[in-house]
Simulated assay, not measured.
Amino acid sequence: MVSTTTSRSIAGLSVLVATALIAGCSSAEDGTVDSGSSTEATTTQSKEGFPVTVTFAPEAPVTIEDQPERIVSLSPAITETLFAVGAGDHVVAVDEYSNYPEDAPLVQGLSGFTPNVESILDYDPDLVVLMSADDSILTGLDAAGVDTLVIPAAENLDETYSQIEQVGRATGFEDQATTVVDQMKTAIDAAVATVPEEVKEQGLTYFHELGSDLFTVSEQTYIGQIYDMFGLTSIADGGDAYSQLSNEAIIAANPDLIFLSDAKAENLTAEDIAARPGWDTIDAVANGRIYILDDDIASRWGPRVSQLVEEIAAQLNQLASSEAVPAAA
């Protein structure tokens, strides 16, 4: 909102905020969805089953007559989803922030925040995926005969699952999408179950940093709901889903845990956080409970959400095993 990092995080996680987990419909050895590869089965699905109708907004169902062969994605979360369900071979261009998986055809300057019809049409798409769009973009793509899906940020896990399944349906990979969702649910349930109940019931509080301008999340947000699965409570209670706290307010709230989703983008370390004026008095800092999250995974609402849940679970388990669970302030 006020900074590039914050606006990207909010757009990703709920926008995100916002946000997508991923390519290839195959699973890693630990049971998580692996978005980096696709199997032969996922790329040879029949074109039978079309036309299909998908609905990402109740008032705007979209009917796709034929299986898309040239897809442009201007949404990092949905780029990951396309590759996760096996449609990656049909993706011809993605926006400048769609940096995962590595083989996604990223185009510098191709924007999902300010999409341009001419730039999109340069790639001769038969399907375009956007996070949001004004009428002029939709009108221009429609005039060119291009199917367009506007897929807003998911507000919760159920919406993520629904979006993945509908993206699979829209691209001809419905069965693979169902497999991805099943794998995600299994991985998330397993990760949450690994954390001891004594940790979940302790009433621990957290500060989730979206940017060094101290924007954070409340429990109303997508990621706030994920923290709630572990019994964690945001220090930003009530009010806006995303709020900017003062340095003094964070110190006074004295969170038990600090999670950073801006470390990569802003080159931050736990030592940088501890060096902030007055922060050495915060329990999370004094007790070494500053946790660095992957910026991209923490700001996207697609298939890699299961990896985010696993990452948080691992950090809480490390806390539980290394010391007695701290008493909440």
Rank of each mutant, 00 (worst) to 15 (best):
P255F: 00
G112Q: 04
A20F: 10
P125L: 00
D135R: 07
L293F: 12
V15R: 15
D147K: 03
L210C: 03
M229L: 15
V91M: 09
A93T: 04
D134Q: 08
Y206Q: 03
D240G: 01
G288T: 04
E69S: 12
D122P: 00
L16H: 13
F56G: 12
L204M: 05
I235Q: 02
I120Q: 06
L121E: 06
S119E: 14
T205Q: 05
E96C: 06
T44R: 03
E159N: 03
T269C: 06
V33M: 13
Y161Q: 01
V94Y: 06
P115D: 01
I282R: 00
M131W: 09
F83G: 08
A324Y: 05
S37M: 13
F215R: 05
F230I: 02
P58D: 06
V117A: 03
Y100A: 03
A252N: 13
G49C: 08
E209T: 04
P152T: 01
S306T: 07
V2N: 12
A41W: 10
F173T: 13
H90T: 10
D34C: 09
P115K: 01
Q183V: 08
V85D: 09
T160M: 04
Q67C: 01
I10D: 01
S132Q: 15
Q166S: 13
K200F: 02
E197D: 14
F56P: 14
L74T: 03
Q244E: 06
A144L: 03
C25T: 11
A274G: 10
D283S: 07
D182P: 10
Q225K: 14
T19A: 13
